[in-house]
Amino acid sequence: MDWSNWSEFLAMGGYGIYVWGSYLVTFACVIGEILLIFKRRRTLVKRYGQIFDANGEDTSYQDDKTAV
């Protein structure tokens, strides 16, 4: 497939909005999913650090119950 220029590529033969609408939302979902997992992990690791440092033992169970 030879596209003669960028605007032809973006136009997708008149179907640009459908093709790029599909691809953009898909990539947003994928990137969003990855970011959410990293964030979930970062929060967890940070909390563990605080909990273990302060007491030398795991008190996260009570911590969980109070922080609804």
């Binding site: 497939m1 596209w3 590529f9 997708m12 033969g13 008149g14 179907y15 459908y18 093709v19 599909s22």
Partner: peptide, 17 residues
């Protein structure tokens, strides 16, 4: 998908979805 595969004879470029 975008640079090797040809245009579809029925669906044009929309098939690239």
């Amino acid at each position: 998908g975008f640079f090797v595969a040809p245009t579809d004879f029925q669906q044009g470029e929309a098939y690239r979805i």
